[in-house]
Design a protein around this nucleic acid. Structure first.
Length: 843
RNA sequence: GCCCGAGUGGUGGAAUGGUAGACGCACUGGACUCAAAAUCCAGCGUCCGAAAGGAUGUGUCGGUUCGAGUCCGACCUCGGGCACCA
């Protein structure tokens, strides 16, 4: 029998599935549904191996659920707007639209090689006018529902390129292309009111039981609910200054007040104080990234103003502008209590401010307790705090709150870290914001019958600034309300908006409105969403918000888009460097004689650790090259084997070879099987082989349902070994075993499974055959192995009938020769018998 | 800085608080072959031992328990995220 020819076979089965429409989404809604979705790709032009891992997992699940009788929706599309297309437009002088659609075509060809069970009739790209027209409609709905509003916000501004920069485009405070020092600039921009749902988004996390705990926790921290006190300081210039604190109990430990460099008061003071203005500029150079701000040295500028302590008007606290106070959180102003907050302490030490401990840990003396250089944030009793002395932290918080509320200068406040979602982007390759600015009427929505608002075809990318904004005619329109001269909003929506509702659009891509009510009611929520952990917060949180906003606008009845979430790990590879320290690609090296050399020479290669595949380190492998050599089933099997799906996997050449050998092994086992009775021959009995088969069916079924692909793979190896060892078993038993094996590998290696199914005499398709069922009586256990320990150390085992009486098990254990030897004549003090598990004799 | 995750043989990893190392890779020995590849069989944590067997062993230190890779506390190391990359 010939070797399995993956290339021919895979093409043949892909064509056959296609011709028979095996993977079209069922339209009869009477059966239970399963919506399986992988995070759709950005069309960079090539699929990378991370996509292969992601889509393989989703495909296994989709095929598994389909054969279990579910109506499966398994679509694919393209997250097609974004920066790379603009960069290509600038660098290669191509139209971003052409570049994007060419990439989509190329990637689609590559994806098709994988044999994914996708319904391609539902494909769309977010840059299709048919899609973003509906997105613009949703934006107008949200505006009407008061979920979209305009406000000023900071951007990174490149003064040379005259363009807004993404954080990623700011390198060491300079524009990535121009090298100019980046400025911060205020622009009037659109926001979506995600904070209207802060509490709801937080509470609902508890209901997402099929989400990783880690992701829920990350979102919880991101939403960042904290309870505290907002109160007003009276300043020496007689103005009031609002601050927020979660530690009102430490108010008597205050030694300064600090405001953000972006605080209105700081702006006001800077108008008359050039040194302060310089200080502000210096702070802003740190950028907007939280990491940079937190890590930067704590810097402050003494405004000369003072704030009166709320409980003692004669106690004056200096007011600083400080770089670590964020305008975006709370009120943009704090009181500093150095003894009990590390940042405040660092600041106080630097500016030689007093450090008074007011929370004293158990057993410490209030008179001598000194925090040194580490703030004390633990529990304790209040001291040096007048009327608070002796209270606990919690009691102190309540007391201060009560007094300031009574005095009318403070109130209890629930503060969220979550900020509204800034969605305006000053970029041409995105969904245009369908709004018009009229000097008379203000902001006017584009009438719905004029949607979609499309970018013009003749954009120039060589100009400075946003091409949409500098285009000679596009933005000039007449106001839909008064007819006067007006201009379009030249910003586009954040691409996260595009990906916040695509899953809903997939349920009916022909819907006239954004969604079809009947389709979303049936298909949503997504039953299993699979993608990278890098989307743990933003994409997933925005999508959760977006569906709520769509509900408010009357489109859907549910709140949560993704009932099940799985975040898969990355694909890594060893890194290689030559003698000169330059990176080498895997195909440039040669492993031989126990060493690693530059291919075609004796130059030694330094092998580095396995890292996420990246172009710069050259440790990438191209999926299409692997498919070309081994076929799609091999790469799919690799992606599922050995490593748990949530963990990073390392691509190795040896592993790929091993998978390919396994493909051949199965093919041999099936195609060379002799003496098999015809399809449908009944089989009875409880031979070892039959028990192994049904045990494998049960285990693989459970593992696939739980997305434990690596364990399912191990079970299949075990079954394969059992079949190999049972060459002398009756034909009917071997047929049953081979059919089970073929069906179990079906979701993972679908082409090979079809070829085997065919070789076993079945009509196509195994992909459409019902999932095998394990027979309960064959899973029953006839004997159990019980471990026997003496003082917790293994001394022997017992083969015994399951559920044997405890006393009998104990007697049998004590009778073991190895046990009497270990006891050495001592009488057992105690014997613990765990039924069917273990006996532990304590001597 | 803050938040999160992970540490088990040569290696990827398995293990409802109950026989640590399933299954795969690599390696070693053997069979087949003129030879190689492929395939098949056997071995494979470490130490002592010819073997039987024994000791030891899941990043470190301590704790809970008849029993800990698993639970608790402290620490060490590595990795990821931090609002305009998608």
């Amino acid at each position: 029998m010939a070797r399995y020819n993956a290339k021919d076979s895979e093409q043949r089965w892909q064509d056959a599935w296609n011709a028979a429409n095996v993977f079209l989404t069922p339209t009869d809604h009477s059966k239970p549904k399963c919506y399986v979705l992988e995070m759709f790709p950005y069309p960079s032009g090539r699929i990378h191996i991370g996509h292969v891992r992601n889509y393989t997992m989703g495909d296994v699940l989709a095929r598994f659920k389909r054969s279990q009788g579910f109506n499966v929706l398994h679509p694919m599309g393209w997250d097609a707007f974004g920066l790379p297309a603009e960069n290509a437009a600038r660098e290669k002088h191509v139209n971003p639209r052409d570049w994007t659609y060419e990439n989509i075509a190329a990637m689609k060809d590559q994806l098709k090689l994988m044999g994914l069970s996708l319904d391609w009739t539902r494909e769309f790209a977010t840059c299709d006018p048919a899609y973003f027209a509906r997105e613009q409609k949703l934006f107008l709905d949200f505006y009407r529902e008061n979920l979209a509003y305009r406000s000023e916000a900071d951007v990174n501004w490149d003064p040379v390129d005259m363009t807004v920069l993404a954080n990623e485009q700011v390198i060491d405070g300079r524009g990535w292309r121009s090298g100019a020092l980046v400025e911060r600039k205020k622009l009037s921009q659109w926001f979506l009111r995600i904070t209207a749902f802060s509490q709801e988004l937080l509470d609902a996390l508890d209901t997402l039981e099929r989400w990783p705990e880690k992701v829920r926790l990350m979102q919880k921290n991101w939403i960042g609910r904290s309870e505290g006190l907002r109160f007003t300081f009276r300043l020496s210039n007689d103005e009031g200054l609002d601050v927020f604190t979660t530690r009102p109990d430490t108010l008597f430990g205050a030694s300064f007040v600090a405001i953000s460099p972006d605080h209105p008061l700081a702006e006001e003071l800077a108008n008359k104080d050039t040194t302060l203005a310089q200080f502000q500029a210096e702070c802003r150079r740190i950028g907007t990234a939280e990491e940079a701000i937190e890590k930067a040295e704590k810097l402050g500028y003494d405004t000369g103003l003072t704030a009166a302590h709320p409980f003692d008007p004669n106690w004056k606290l200096p007011v600083y502008v400080a770089n670590f106070v964020l305008m975006a959180y709370g009120t943009g102003a704090i009181f500093g209590c150095p003894a009990h907050d590390q940042r405040d302490l660092d600041f106080a030490r630097k500016y030689k401010l007093t450090v008074n401990a007011v929370v004293i840990p158990e057993g410490a003396d209030p008179k001598t307790f000194d925090v040194g250089n580490e703030a004390y944030v633990g529990p304790g009793k209040l001291a040096n705090s007048q009327f608070l002395d002796g209270l606990t932290v919690e009691e102190g918080k309540a007391e201060v709150l009560k007094r300031l509320e009574t005095a009318g200068i403070g109130e209890r406040k629930v503060q969220f870290r979550l900020r509204d979602w800034l969605v305006s982007r000053q970029r041409p390759w995105g969904c245009p914001i369908p709004m018009i600015h009229c000097p008379t009427c203000g902001v006017v929505p584009v009438p719905e019958d004029q949607l979609p608002v499309k970018a013009p075809d003749d954009l120039t990318f060589t100009v400075k600034g946003n091409p949409l904004d500098v285009h000679p005619t596009w933005k000039h329109v007449s106001c839909p309300q008064c007819g006067g001269a007006a201009t379009r909003d030249t910003d586009t929506l954040d691409t996260f908006v595009d990906s916040s509702w695509y899953y809903a659009r997939f349920t009916d891509t022909t819907a006239e409105g954004p969604v079809n009510q009947e389709a979303v009611d049936y298909w949503l929520p997504v039953d299993q969403y699979i993608g990278g952990i890098e989307h743990a917060i933003l994409h997933l949180l925005y999508s959760r918000f977006f569906l709520r906003a769509m509900k408010k606008a009357g489109y859907v009845k549910i709140d949560e888009p993704f009932a099940g979430l799985f975040t898969q790990g990355m694909v890594c590879h060893e890194t290689y460097k030559d003698a000169a320290g330059l990176w080498l690609a895997p195909e440039q090296i040669d492993k031989r004689d126990g060493g690693v050399f530059v291919k075609g020479s004796d130059e030694k290669v330094t092998v580095g650790p396995s890292e996420k595949m990246s172009k710069s380190k050259k440790n990438v492998v191209a999926p299409e090259a692997i498919i070309d050599i081994f076929g799609a089933d091999t790469i799919r099997w690799f992606m599922l084997s050995d490593t748990p799906p949530e963990r990073d996997i390392e691509w190795t050449e040896e592993g790929a070879d091993a998978c390919w050998k396994f493909v051949q092994r199965i093919w041999r086992l099936v195609s060379e099987a002799e003496g098999l009775p015809p399809v449908g021959t009944p089989v009875t009995g409880n031979s070892d082989l039959r028990r192994a088969v049904h045990k494998a069916i049960a285990a693989v079924t459970e593992d696939l349902a739980g997305l434990r692909f690596n364990r399912a793979v191990a079970q299949i190896y075990t079954l394969t070994n059992a079949i190999s060892a049972a060459g002398a078993a009756p034909g009917a038993e071997r047929r049953e075993a081979l059919e089970a094996l073929v069906q179990l590998i079906g979701p993972m290696m679908p082409h090979l499974a079809e070829s085997c199914w065919d070789a076993l005499g079945h009509a196509p398709f195994v992909a459409a055959a019902p999932w095998p069922k394990a027979e309960a009586e064959l899973l029953a256990i006839h004997t159990v192995t019980i471990a026997v320990q003496v003082n917790g150390k293994l001394r022997g085992t017992l083969e015994i009938a399951p559920d044997t009486d405890k006393a009998e098990v104990e007697a049998a254990a004590l009778a073991l020769e190895s046990v009497t030897r270990a006891l050495d004549g001592k009488a057992p003090k105690k014997v613990i018998v765990v039924p069917n598990r273990i006996v532990n004799i304590v001597a």
